[in-house]
């Protein structure tokens, strides 16, 4: 069983997470054509290599997190917390949040 680097909880077994899929931006429903909307619903890059994914740590911090995972080696890189686009600050310890670096 692989581990995922949760930016809040540290490395945890993947069974604690639910896969929410490749990060796919939601088009503006007011302007999206049906084709664009269905691309958002069904079409994924599915690369052989690195891919940004959203996972839900339901059996842990209950946060939606982003993970960069290599689909061939299953290597997973320290993630960003959702809601932000910046990588987690691995040096900060005073925020009440854990360090996220070196999860692998």
């Amino acid at each position: 069983m692989i581990q995922l680097p949760c930016p809040w909880c540290g490395p945890r077994n993947v069974a604690e997470f639910r896969y929410s899929g490749e990060v796919t931006p939601r088009p503006d429903p007011a302007t999206a054509t049906p084709e664009q909307w269905r691309d958002y619903l069904y079409i994924r890059r599915n690369p052989s290599g690195w891919v940004d994914e959203t996972w839900y740590h339901g059996t842990g911090c209950r946060r939606f997190i982003r993970v960069s995972r290599h689909t061939v080696s299953n290597e997973a890189r320290p993630a960003v917390r959702t809601g932000t686009t910046a990588p987690v600050d691995v040096t900060s310890t005073d925020s009440g949040a854990p360090d996220a670096g070196g999860a692998r």
Partner: peptide, 8 residues
């Protein structure tokens, strides 16, 4: 050590 650094 990496794990210790990562866990809260």
């Amino acid at each position: 050590h990496a794990k210790l650094t990562a866990v809260p």
